[in-house]
Design a binder for these strands. Structure first.
Length: 272
DNA sequence: AGCATTGTTTCACA
DNA sequence: TTGTGAAACAATGC
């Protein structure tokens, strides 16, 4: 689930974990916490507090302070392919849950404790957890934000033109490149290109300035809507990504292929 | 059994 | 050196 909209919702959940004293951190999963050694993150955080939750693209991070009030390290959190943030309040009451916009039914079932990959415990009895079946999520100190392009929800017109509108790669691959702009994932890319009636295979460098401006407008609208509705899976075309389905707008068959190394669906008529 | 998966990193190649 | 594409990564679900 986690693309920019899900991550923004997760970031808001993360805010419920701010300003609470950290008593313990379980960072024993060496893959999720790479390149740190077990205990390293704990040592940096215990006694301190998280003080702010930020996001750029699909990466989140928290500012921290140490026990004596000095600035602490940044704590980076990435949800990977399927991670979610869970925050419980005092006595473990549910406070913030599973940003990601899955149906409630999905949230309620199958939450094995071993799928909590990292746990930050607070002195009030509550906790912050990275819940991730697939283990591709990541928690680390001092995440590298410079490798990320501007956030897809914030990028300005001129910057979008300059960064996206170049190269011979298919425009979809360009949108997915996190160093070009950050936050767009496979589903948001398909949704955006479908809404803009753009063929995902078209080389990004061939786009006119007007086309790039329109693409940016559609991307921002689709992103905003997805945040409001709770996730990219609420997109108009996403539910039509299956065999023998048709375009919900014109009725032509939906087509499937691989673009940018990812499974891609597009309308055979409007995006040809 | 085999294939696909809403992400990122790494590697091969032009 | 830069741009591009595909495999590897971990684990689950259909």
């Amino acid at each position: 689930m986690p693309e920019l909209p899900e991550v923004e919702n997760a970031r808001q959940v993360l805010e419920k974990a701010l300003d609470r004293t950290i008593t313990d951190v379980d960072d024993s999963d060496e893959y999720v916490c790479r390149p740190h050694r077990p205990g390293e993150i704990a040592k940096a955080l215990v006694g301190g507090k998280l003080t702010a939750a930020h996001r750029k693209g699909k990466t989140m991070w928290c500012d921290t302070v140490t026990a004596d009030g000095a600035a602490g390290p940044h704590l980076g959190v990435h949800l990977g392919m399927g991670g979610r943030i869970r925050v419980t309040g005092p006595r473990g009451s549910r406070e913030g849950d599973l940003a990601g916009g899955l149906p409630r039914k999905e949230n309620e079932r199958a939450q094995k404790p071993e799928w909590d990959r990292v746990t930050v415990s607070f002195d009030d009895g509550g906790s912050l957890r990275l819940f991730d079946k697939r283990r591709l999520g990541r928690v680390r100190l001092e995440p590298d934000l410079d490798a990320l392009g501007p956030d897809a929800a914030e990028i300005g017109r001129d910057e979008f033109r300059a960064r996206v509108g170049r190269g011979t790669a298919p425009v979809k691959a360009r949108l997915l490149d996190q160093s070009v702009l950050s936050g767009v994932g496979n589903l948001l890319a398909d949704e955006t290109l479908w809404q803009a009636k753009v063929d995902p295979h078209r080389p990004a460098g061939e786009f006119t300035t007007d086309e790039l401006d329109e693409l940016r407008r559609v991307l921002r609208r689709a992103t905003r809507r997805a945040i409001e509705k709770g996730g990219v899976h609420t997109g108009e075309v996403i539910t039509h990504r299956q065999r023998d389905d048709v375009c919900p707008r014109c009725g032509a068959p939906m087509e499937r292929g691989t673009v940018g190394s990812r499974t891609t669906w597009w309308c055979s008529a409007e995006q040809a």
